[in-house]
Amino acid sequence: MARAAGIPDAVWNMDAGAGAITEAEDAGADLDDARAAAAHTQASTTARYSRGAVGKSRKVATLRIAHRGVKNGA
């Protein structure tokens, strides 16, 4: 089917899943919600598909800044 659609052999079905999981995480979905949407039974499987290192780093930085504000009474 993929060849008939003109999709290169280098693109695997799991690439689409990885893209969807990464996009969901970047949009703010947590890993367990992404796991359920992907129909994975193990969160470790979903984590392997996630390629959103930048989004994860950004989210952690945002949470740390918010925590500092609360801690410092802001």
Rank of each mutant, 00 (worst) to 15 (best):
A74N: 08
D30T: 12
A18K: 03
A53Q: 08
T62G: 10
R51E: 06
I7S: 06
A4E: 09
V11R: 15
D9H: 05
D33S: 13
R35Q: 08
N13T: 04
A74H: 07
V60P: 01
R58W: 10
A4V: 05
D30M: 03
G17S: 06
G69F: 10
L63K: 12
R58N: 03
A66V: 12
L31F: 13
D32M: 12
I7Y: 05
A36S: 14
K71Y: 11
H67W: 10
G52M: 03
A18C: 05
R48H: 13
R3Y: 13
T46Y: 00
R51F: 00
Y49W: 08
A34H: 03
R48V: 03
D26I: 09
A36Y: 09
G28Q: 05
S44T: 02
M14Q: 05
H40I: 01
E23R: 15
N72L: 14
D15I: 06
H40D: 03
A18S: 15
G52S: 15
D15K: 03
A5H: 13
R48N: 09
V54H: 15
A66P: 03
A43G: 04
N13P: 12
Y49V: 00
A27F: 13
H67F: 10
K71H: 11
A5E: 13
T46N: 02
A66M: 05
S44P: 00
T46K: 00
R68M: 14
A36L: 10
A27C: 07
L31R: 07
A24P: 01
A47T: 02
V54T: 12
A61S: 11
Y49E: 02
W12V: 11
D30Q: 08
S57A: 14
G55D: 04
S50D: 11
A10G: 08
A39W: 05
G69P: 04
S44N: 03
R3W: 13
R51A: 06
R3V: 05
R48M: 14
D30V: 15
A61W: 11
K59L: 07
G6T: 05
R51I: 00
G69K: 06
D32N: 10
A36I: 13
K56P: 00
G69W: 09
P8N: 03
T22V: 00
H40V: 02
Y49Q: 04
A4Y: 08
G17H: 05
K59A: 07
A27D: 11
A47E: 08
D33R: 14
V54Q: 14
S50G: 06
T45L: 02
A18F: 03
A24Q: 08
R35V: 01
A36K: 11
A4P: 01
A53W: 01
A53I: 11
G55Q: 03
V70H: 15
I21S: 00
A34L: 04
A18D: 02
S44R: 04
R35W: 01
A4N: 15
T45V: 11
H67A: 11
R3L: 10
A38M: 07
R35T: 10
V11I: 15
P8G: 02
R35A: 04
A10M: 15
D32T: 15
N72Y: 15
A2L: 12
L63A: 13
A34D: 02
D30H: 13
A18I: 01
A74T: 12
M1A: 12
N13D: 13
A10H: 11
Y49P: 00
T22A: 09
D32W: 12
H40G: 01
